[in-house]
Simulated scan of single mutants.
Amino acid sequence: MNKFPIGIFDSGFGGLTVFKSIAEKLPQYDYIYLGDNARSPYGDHSFETVYQYTLECVEWLFAQGCTLVILACNTASAKALRNIQQLDLPKKYPNNRVLGVIRPTAEVIGNYSTTKNVGVLGTRGTVNSNSYAIEIEHFFPDIKVHQQACPMWVPIIENGEHLSAGADFFVDEYIQQLLQKSNEIDCVLLACTHYPLLVPKIKKHLPGNVKIVAQGDIVANSLVDYLKRHTELETKLAKNAQRTFYTSGDVKVFNERASMFLGEKIAAQKMNKS
């Protein structure tokens, strides 16, 4: 019987922070990572465009043999996941599954806050979708969610400028805008998988009592639980610890930048769309 790899998708590099946590928790599985770098960032694109791009990439991963795909991208999870799950999978891929990063995060984020005031930092697309406020209310109806879009953060990170002095201006600007919404925020969610690379600067500009929550371990723990509950899917997964990386963009640039997110060198391949 054929065994299948797990697909992990992101609009660019950010999903590598989620992939890293997943691979550390579940090292035995085969993974195919796809970054749609040629069309990133997704944050300012319309719902229609993000849905179209995400579906194309998910279908490409399906064609590579992935029966389970993780959208390791908050914008794709906010703007495309529901349509893919409700419209595309039942009609065309009834045996395949696509999971996102928003629901697993919403299920636990309330546990990090004492004041019941949570800040959410994300792309414009994620914030405008209001997905986190809606999902968090399902699990923690008493939590107040304060959102702030950070449109400059992804370009800064993807261009390797996240450690520069210039990045401090934009980190401080968005954090101050968030904190002006409430002085009771005691927990800040990094609702973009790129943002963990900015943690040293975010810590510098946040009050010391405010917790910073990244998504990598949360999503990895959720996947561990999901596979335990869905043995019919888990038994079909390949377990050769093979990891393959693809990009729709420039391979050389991807290899250089990916090492920032993974902490190791990789050799990606060009996504063949034919």
Rank of each mutant, 00 (worst) to 15 (best):
M1P: 12
K3T: 15
F4Y: 15
P5L: 08
D10I: 04
G14M: 04
G14D: 08
G15L: 07
F19S: 03
I22L: 14
A23K: 15
A23N: 15
P27H: 09
Q28I: 10
I32C: 06
I32H: 09
I32G: 05
I32F: 14
Y33M: 07
D44Y: 06
H45Y: 13
E48L: 13
E59R: 11
F62K: 07
I70F: 02
I70D: 02
C73H: 06
T75M: 06
A76I: 09
K79Q: 15
K79R: 13
K79V: 03
I84G: 05
L87P: 00
D88R: 15
P94E: 04
R97Y: 14
V98M: 07
I102M: 08
I102H: 01
A106D: 04
I109M: 05
S113R: 09
T114H: 11
T115Y: 08
N117L: 02
V120N: 06
G122T: 01
R124P: 09
N128A: 11
N130W: 01
Y132H: 07
E135A: 15
H138Y: 11
H138G: 00
H146T: 03
Q147F: 06
Q147W: 04
W153K: 01
W153E: 09
V154M: 01
E161D: 13
L163A: 14
A165T: 09
G166I: 01
F169H: 14
V171E: 05
Y174M: 08
Q177D: 12
Q177Y: 09
K181T: 14
K181G: 06
S182Q: 11
N183P: 01
N183H: 13
I185R: 05
D186R: 10
C192N: 07
H194D: 10
H194T: 07
Y195T: 05
V199P: 03
V199E: 15
I202G: 02
K204R: 14
V213Y: 02
Q215A: 07
A220Y: 01
N221P: 00
D225L: 12
L227Q: 05
T231W: 02
E232S: 15
L233Y: 03
R243M: 13
V251M: 05
A258W: 09
M260H: 14
L262Q: 10
G263I: 09
I266V: 11
Q269H: 12
N272T: 14
K273D: 08
K273Q: 13
S274E: 13
